[in-house]
Nucleic acid binder design. Structure first.
Lengths: 156, 156
DNA sequence: GTGCTACTTGAAGCCAGCTTCAGGTCAAGG
DNA sequence: CCTTGACCTGAAGCTGGCTTCAAGTAGCAC
């Protein structure tokens, strides 16, 4: 814990790839904690980088911050996730990822059958009612995230 | 176009499953158009139901409203999509769906390799940098939509 | 001590896709 | 005519995950 080992927010931002605004936000949300200089500036321990790597991986998987926080909070003494922790958490997320893939595949199959029929029936079309999982989620339910929706050039 | 064939917003809401607020919103956004009574209330032609079925199907596929509007606008005379229209548009969306499935599968494979190593390396971890497609999309990029993120009970 | 950059804060803004609300109007049945 | 319920509008709110802004302060090199 030599103070010379502490990192500024700019350094953490640079090394982690998260902008400072995100780091401050994560702190407000209780995902990170920092020490402060006498003047009030943030100083980060090196272990925060590993925590941020964990956060990045979770976010990539689509895990929300609430759940990331829960995962981190379950670690004794708020320690940085080690290999075993990561393994346990990622295994549970892996199941979810499988579910999502299944849901998309089912949707694709439904679409395939619809391309042929073109019915768009409110009552019978599989695409219109592609199963309980999606139907449950309300009228505005979307299967795909915004970022994947606008394919930049090729897919139009 | 007998006026007795026109539907009120409540009827359309009931038959389409979209709440009135969504129907009004779609109209503001230029996805639907309506006629009005002398008193200013909306009256819908029956064909709006087919248009709404199209919108529902597109939304289920994750197509954004902008793109749905583009699709509908391309139809001559703003007519309701028929089988051929639906077939053409859904085929282009089908390609995108494939891409999304690919992306998720790649992510899952990356996760699998990570579960074993537990490295969380900022530089080398596949999950941390799961490929250009995701990396391009910025720090907050999420592969999965909010609705799929909180699995109700089982996956925790 | 001077000057520069990096840092601090709270509040507000942004995105999509709606929902909700307040306050008022319409349409139709009795 | 009167009541009742469905409808109207514009504005504001909601979600999540940040970003942006303005105004002020810290830390470090010279």
């Amino acid at each position: 814990m030599d103070t010379r080992d502490l990192l500024t927010i700019g350094e953490v931002a640079h090394r982690s790839g998260f902008p400072p605004s995100a780091l401050r936000y994560y702190e407000r949300e209780g995902l990170l904690h920092t020490t402060r200089t006498s003047g009030g500036q943030r100083r980060y321990e090196r272990s925060v980088l590993r925590r941020l790597a964990f956060i990045r991986a979770a976010r990539t998987l689509g895990v929300g911050l609430d759940e990331v926080r829960e995962g981190l909070d379950q670690l004794p003494d708020g320690r940085t996730p080690n290999k075993a922790d990561w393994s346990r958490l990622s295994r549970s997320w892996r199941g979810r990822l499988d579910e999502q893939i299944q849901a998309l595949v089912a949707l694709r199959d439904g679409l395939d059958s619809c391309i042929g029929c073109g019915c768009l029936s409110l009552q019978r079309c599989r695409l219109y009612n592609p199963g309980d999982r999606v139907a449950e989620l309300g009228p505005g339910a979307r299967l795909l995230p915004p970022m994947l929706r606008r394919t930049p050039a090729e897919g139009v």
